[in-house]
Each structure stands twice: as structure tokens, then as C-alpha cells.
Design a protein around this nucleic acid. Structure first.
Lengths: 148, 148
DNA sequence: GTGCGGCCTCAAGTACACTTGAGGTCAAGT
DNA sequence: ACTTGACCTCAAGTGTACTTGAGGCCGCAC
């Protein structure tokens, strides 16, 4: 099983080397080390990192992604079945998000005529309280629930 | 035309007072002032701020939102037609985003069987280069193009 | 065995979107 | 007049997600 240095992982995934090191610090990958202390990755790690990129793109936080990845086995290399399980969970999160956006769009359609966007009666404004429930920091898109 | 103090605006919109002041600093609202220096808002400002909240929820940045709001008239109170124009533009941004997510979901469906997520052949992995094109800072959801 | 590119750590910096705190003013009610 | 709560400014802090920089090893190629 080929061991891959960080630079090559970076090239293959499109991530910056610094980002990969950061993800290790965040517990998203656990590369091995050479005798001299340099990181060595396995192919399964590239898979993990690709998952991280895609999930990030969808607006999931690192904490969410860590939770999702924790469903993969720790000691053994994840099998196809492990990844399939993860993907299915992921797909349902995606469905929820799409549904939320679609609903919002439909409500927006209903609102375009009224031009209010703020009156207490406006459906769009009263849509839900997700925004209020979020804490500080960057807010992600509607319905950003943790993967689990 | 009733002039509204910041606390009431906060209550009506659900925003924190500090957030409203921040949005003023960012140029998203321009409240007037009393002789004593306290902010006074008009009803149209509540509308603006509600728009800001909704757009934020969709993952648009403050810069994007500022651009969008700049299509509203500066001196005159925006009319229903002004808001409708803005909403339509907004709606199309939303459509783009929904389409992107839906496409990603479909690709994910095609990928669930293979469990790869990382091989060069994987459609999901090769989906596009949006992530790489984004700069530093928090990344928002797929297809986050400026509103314009 | 030496040069050099890639790797290492650790601290600090950056961008976004706000919040918190200190210290002080305004204005409405009694 | 005075109290009190809402408001003011300005500086600093927070959380997320990284990047940049300084200063220094690793290891392969020649």
C-alpha cells in the first residue's frame, strides 16, 4: 500500500498543504509519520479529504464533518459499505437543504407581488426561526443541521 | 411617518441591536439621527433589514447584499416596484443555487454505489472547481455568485 | 557528502460577521 | 429635578476556517 507525502495529497485533492495540516489538527485525518517525522497518507485519506471538501462546499462545518466521519471505522480501512452508509446520510441532509431552499423560493414567489418582505403578515418573513437559533460566526444556508 | 428607535427595530426584525449598528457601518442601512444623536429608522429600513436577514440566511455575503440593495433608490423611499425588481433578481440567484445542489445530489446518487468519492473517475469529485476558485474566509454553499 | 526542494513546528495574521465591555449621554416618566 | 432604561462610541474579543512567515530538519539525487 503506497504511502503518500502531503504535497502529493495536496495536488491530488486540490487542497492547500496548510489546509491538510489544519484538518489533521481538527481531527479529520490521522496520517502516519516517517521515522523523520514527515506525514504519510494512505489512499483512504484522500477519500476522507475529498469528502471534507464536498461537505464544506455544501456549508457543513468542520464539527459536522468530524461527526460524520466518526461513523467510519477507526482502525480498519473503510470499506465501500462504510462509505455508502456515509453517502446516504449525506444525501438526506442534502435533500433537506434543497427542500428548504425550494420552499423559500416558493414563498418568495408568493411575496414578489406584495413587495413587503417585512410586514408581520409576510410569509417570507415569518418563514421560520432558523436564523435566530444560530449562534455567532458565519451562518450557513437554511436548514444547516448537523449530519447524523 | 413614524420614526422608530433602534431597540424597536431590533425587536421587530429579530436582529440584535449590535448587528443593526454593524449593518449601518457596512452601509446596509442609513438611519437618521435625533438632535441628541440617537438613530431613528423608518419602516422602509425594517424592510431593508429583513431583506438582509433573508439573504444572509441564503449564504450571501454582506458585500453581495450591499450590491443588491444598491439597486434600490437612495433618496426616495423604495416603491413596491423597486422591491419586486430586487426580489426577482434574488429569486433567480436562488434558482441557480437550488439547481446546483440538485445536480450535486444527482451525482451523489450516481456515486453511492461506487463508494469512491476520490478517484479521478468520480463524477462527484470532478464536479467543478468552485471550491478552488473561492478565496479565504468562510465558504458558502455551492454556486454562491454575487447578486447582480 | 552535499545541495536543495519538500517537509516540519509554532506563532501570528486574515477575512467575515458579529458581540462584548467600558465609559458615558439622552429622554421619558414621576 | 432626578432616576432609569435605552441609547451612544470606540476598542477589543469571538468563532470559523484557514494562510503566511520565520526558522529549521529530511531525504533523494548527484
Amino acid at each position: 500500500m503506497a504511502l503518500i507525502p502531503i504535497g502529493e495529497v495536496a495536488q491530488r485533492t486540490g487542497l492547500a498543504v496548510s489546509a491538510i495540516r489544519f484538518y489533521e489538527e481538527m481531527g479529520l485525518v490521522r496520517p502516519g509519520r516517517t521515522a523523520g517525522g514527515q506525514r504519510v497518507f494512505e489512499r483512504a485519506d484522500i477519500r476522507r479529504l475529498s469528502f471534507v471538501m464536498i461537505a464544506q462546499r455544501l456549508g457543513f462545518s468542520i464539527a459536522d464533518i468530524r461527526t460524520a466521519l466518526s461513523s467510519l471505522p477507526d482502525e480498519r480501512t473503510p470499506t465501500k459499505a462504510d462509505w455508502t452508509r456515509l453517502s446516504l446520510r449525506f444525501r438526506s441532509a442534502l435533500d433537506t437543504r434543497i427542500q428548504g431552499l425550494t420552499e423559500l423560493r416558493d414563498r418568495l414567489d408568493g411575496c414578489i407581488g406584495c413587495g413587503c418582505l417585512s410586514l408581520d403578515l409576510c410569509q417570507l418573513h415569518n418563514f421560520d426561526d432558523i436564523a435566530a437559533a444560530n449562534g455567532t460566526g458565519p451562518r450557513y444556508v437554511l436548514g444547516n443541521k448537523p449530519l447524523n
